[in-house]
Amino acid sequence: MYKNWWKILASILVLYTVIGGLLIQVPELPILHESIRNLYFHVPMWFAMIVVYLVSVIYSIKYLNSGNENHDLIAVESVNTGIVFGFIGLASGMIWANYTWGSPWPNDPKLNSAAISTLMYLAYIVLRSSIEEEQKRAKISAIYNIFAFPAMVVLLFILPRLTDSLHPGNGGNPGFGTYDLDRNMRFVFYPAVLGWILISVWIMTIRYRIRLIENKQNQID
């Protein structure tokens, strides 16, 4: 039980945000209207994605220092989970953009950056599949993972701030935090972010443990 409290917390938080996010009063804003509720689902995806990518980089560094293949497994499963969250984030954002900005893919730096960073991690997967030897694969992909991470940070956090963006908080637009996000929304938004981050880590650990069992099965006794 003491090991699983965070899984229970994650389930409760996400359940609460699904129910609360759809029922609790939201401020009435022009253009956004009720679609503002997507904030509770779209934005936490990116938080979850960045957290699992960060976990992946940390374990890639650990792998280079230790040579322990379990660290490599955690790194690759984190990337796999992060890609899924990235795709869900893109999809939920495209639906939202279709109703508020008029088209699913307006030419916005944040959209392009998110798509490119997803490409970067897809390239990581391709790199892995192109190397047969296991230790070499683990080492080289760990190196690429660490090398690509600063580029992703630049893409997601620096570039959008240098140019105009439709997203709040960029290019002189006020962030949600300043006045749009009222007290009620904060009560749902912050638990949603925490809940989805925990869920993403949970998915990653399940996938990691499945891989461990598979490896054990494949071993010759």
């Binding site: 950056s113 490119i116 960073s117 490409l119 970067m120 390239a123 391709v126 790199l127 192109s130 190397i131 047969e132 070499k136 080289i140 190196i143 690429y144 090398f147 690509a148 580029a151 630049v154 893409l155 620096i158 570039l159 240098l162």
Partner: peptide
């Protein structure tokens, strides 16, 4: 250097480098 370690490195070079160079290229 990374691509040289993997087989089939001509394609890999482009796949690996484009996403990394794009932020620089935009600047």
């Amino acid at each position: 250097a990374i691509a040289a370690k993997a087989s089939n490195n001509g394609t890999l070079m482009a796949i690996l480098s484009f996403p990394v160079i794009i932020p620089l290229l935009m600047l």
